[in-house]
Design a protein around this nucleic acid. Structure first.
Lengths: 111, 111
DNA sequence: TGGTTATTTGGCAAAATAACCATATATTTT
DNA sequence: AAAATATATGGTTATTTTGCCAAATAACCA
C-alpha cells in the first residue's frame, strides 16, 4: 500500500488534533487541565495558585474550551470548568516518559 | 489535603511536559510523528507529502527532536527520524475523542 | 576533483500568541 | 437600587513562531 498525501478531510482532522495538543502545550493550561482531573473547579480556585492576571487566566481557559478540552458551567457568581474527555490526562505519563528519556540521556552524557 | 502552589521542581516538570505537547501541537509535526509510528523514515520520505519548503520541514523535525519526541540518525546521504517513545502516538485516540465530542455537540445543535 | 543530492542553518518578514490594563457583564448582597 | 464579587472581553505591546529564500554542509558519484 502506497502512502497517500493527506486529503482535505484528513487534513482537517490532523489540524483539529494538533489544536487540542497545542491547547495543552502551555504550562498554565496544562496545569489547569491536570487540576481538573480530580473534579471540576471554579476559576477562582484555579486562579489561587497561578501568578497571572485574572484576564490572562480567563483567556487560557477559553483556549482550552474552544479546543474541546474543557466545558464550563455558570453557577451563581462562579463559573466551573471540568474536563470533557478525562482520558486526555491519562496520556500524560507517556509525555513524562519522553522527558525521562531525554533526562536520562543527558545524565548519561555527564557520566 | 490542601492543594499547594506548584514548587519550582513541579514547575519545571510541567514546562517540560507542555513543551512536548506543544511540539506535537502543529499539524505538520503531528502528521510527521504519526507517520513515524510505523517505523523510521528519512526526511525525503516525509517531505514527499508535505507542501512546504525543505528548510521548513527540517525545522519542524528539529522542534520534535529538541522536545525529545524523535531521534535522528544519518545513514549515507539521508537522515532517518524515528519516534523515541512510541506511546506518544498511542495516545492520540483520546485526542480524537475530544474532537468527536465537539463535533457531536455541533451536530446536535443543528438537529 | 568537481558535481550532485539530501539536509541543515541563518536571516528576515508576516502571523500568531501571551500578558497586561482597563472596561464590560452578570450575579449576588446590602 | 447601589455596591461588591466573579469572570470575560477589547485593546495594546512584546515575544515567539512560522515559513520562505539563499547559502552552508555532508556524503556520494562521475
Amino acid at each position: 500500500m502506497k502512502r497517500q498525501p493527506p486529503n482535505s478531510r484528513e487534513k482537517a482532522l490532523i489540524e483539529a488534533k494538533a489544536n487540542v495538543l497545542k491547547a495543552l502545550g502551555h504550562p498554565t493550561r496544562l496545569w489547569m487541565a491536570e487540576q481538573l482531573a480530580d473534579g471540576e473547579k471554579c476559576v477562582c480556585e484555579l486562579a489561587e495558585f497561578i501568578d497571572a492576571d485574572f484576564s490572562t487566566i480567563s483567556k487560557h481557559l477559553a483556549v482550552l474550551k474552544q479546543a474541546g478540552v474543557v466545558e464550563d458551567e455558570k453557577r451563581g457568581k462562579q463559573v466551573y470548568y471540568r474536563l470533557k474527555v478525562p482520558c486526555i490526562i491519562k496520556y500524560l505519563p507517556c509525555v513524562e516518559a519522553v522527558i525521562e528519556t531525554s533526562v536520562r540521556e543527558r545524565v548519561a552524557l555527564l557520566a
